[in-house]
Amino acid sequence: MATQVADSDESTWTTASTHRTSGIEIKQLLQRDGEARSFEFNLVRFGGEDFWSPRHRHNFDQIRIGLEGETNYGPHRKLPARTIGYYPEGTHYGPLSVSGEPSVQAILQFDGASRGGYVTYEHLDTATAELRELGEFRKGFWHPNEGGKAVDGYQASWERATGRTMVYPEPRFDEAVYMHVDAFAWTQTEGSAVQRKHLGSFGERGLRIEMALVPAGESMAVGEPGRSGIAFVLSGRVASGGSEVSRYSAMLAEEDGSVEVTGVAELTELVLITLPKFD
């Protein structure tokens, strides 16, 4: 499939991440399940009195886009609305908590620099259900019935799903990278009314995070040959593939295709993510 378009208005919130803590709901936007090329892009809502997640790390990369409310990611580490966080593989973050009202983020999880692969929720949830027969998930860790050392909840489910031992890559960054999007300046695109912001590029596999400002009636293509690209509607509304796409929706251009988007609202902000090279 060359493209995917996911309108957030057409999906509902469902419970997720039972390996970690209660109080997490998701709306699935985009997913690709295929060994090292797997990724998942969801709207995620954190909240509820029981929500809490311990300080931990992963063997994959994450990009988290703050949309509503504010999530605490540890002492002096917060992700409010209109901030984008890059959480590299091997780098610890947390503990996670929410103060006050639930917070909403768009979260992209995908294969990192070490090529450890990414396991989608579908496989992870199956493994988690199996582990519940053999132990208990509590406060972000799995405790086996026969005793012994508790294991990070995600790690336990990942190892069950893959049949492999988790190897955490050496961290390239001491902390997650937080990008405050309104502090970046727009730059004009030559020959177009569309403006761009370059927020960051990471690693030798070419991960790139940008933004585009699309006026009503103006069009732009998302994607480039040989790379997978995602466009997320941060504000406004666009048309793509003959239908309108609302705020908090996403479009995927696979390596062999592109997505044409046209501004519908007076101004539409897109977050553009070029995924790592999957060769």
Rank of each mutant, 00 (worst) to 15 (best):
N72C: 11
H92T: 06
Y121N: 04
Q62N: 10
W13T: 02
M251R: 01
T128H: 10
V214L: 12
R115C: 12
G153V: 02
V194G: 01
N59R: 15
R45D: 00
R247P: 02
K27P: 10
F278R: 14
I209L: 11
F173T: 09
H143W: 08
V98I: 08
E170N: 08
M166Y: 15
P95T: 06
M1G: 07
A250K: 11
I84A: 07
L252N: 01
V194Q: 02
G206C: 08
D182G: 10
R32L: 11
E254I: 05
V271F: 11
T126P: 00
Y248W: 13
L213Y: 10
G236D: 00
L29G: 02
G85D: 02
R247F: 02
D182I: 14
E101C: 00
A106D: 04
K149G: 08
Y93V: 07
K27C: 07
G148H: 13
F39D: 01
E133A: 13
A6P: 01
I65T: 00
V44S: 05
I63A: 01
G85H: 09
G116I: 14
G217Y: 15
I209S: 05
K197G: 00
L252S: 08
W158H: 12
F137A: 03
A231D: 01
L43N: 01
N145G: 09
D61G: 06
R172Y: 07
W142D: 02
A221N: 06
T262Q: 06
R237N: 09
G229M: 15
D174Q: 12
R160E: 03
H58V: 09
D256H: 09
K78R: 15
I63R: 09
L267A: 14
L199T: 05
G147N: 02
D9W: 13
W142G: 07
K197M: 01
I24Y: 05
H76D: 13
S11L: 11
E130F: 12
M166S: 11
D61W: 00
V259H: 03
E70P: 07
Q105H: 13
R205L: 14
N42Y: 03
N42S: 09
W52D: 08
G223N: 06
R20Y: 07
E25N: 01
V181T: 08
R64V: 14
F137L: 04
T18Q: 14
T187A: 07
V214N: 04
E218G: 04
V181P: 04
D279H: 13
Q109V: 13
G69S: 01
E146K: 14
E133M: 11
E224A: 04
H76R: 15
Y73G: 03
A250Y: 08
A183T: 14
L134M: 11
A212Y: 11
G217C: 15
Q4T: 03
E190S: 14
T268F: 15
M251I: 04
I24N: 00
L252Q: 05
E255T: 12
R55D: 03
S192Y: 10
G206H: 10
P88L: 04
R55Y: 08
G23E: 01
D182M: 10
G90W: 00
T126R: 14
K27N: 10
T274A: 06
A113H: 14
K197I: 03
T165G: 04
D9Q: 10
E170V: 14
T91A: 04
S157E: 08
D50F: 15
A127I: 13
L29S: 00
D174H: 12
A127S: 06
R247S: 05
E224G: 01
L131G: 00
S8L: 10
P80F: 11
D61Q: 04
T14D: 07
W186S: 03
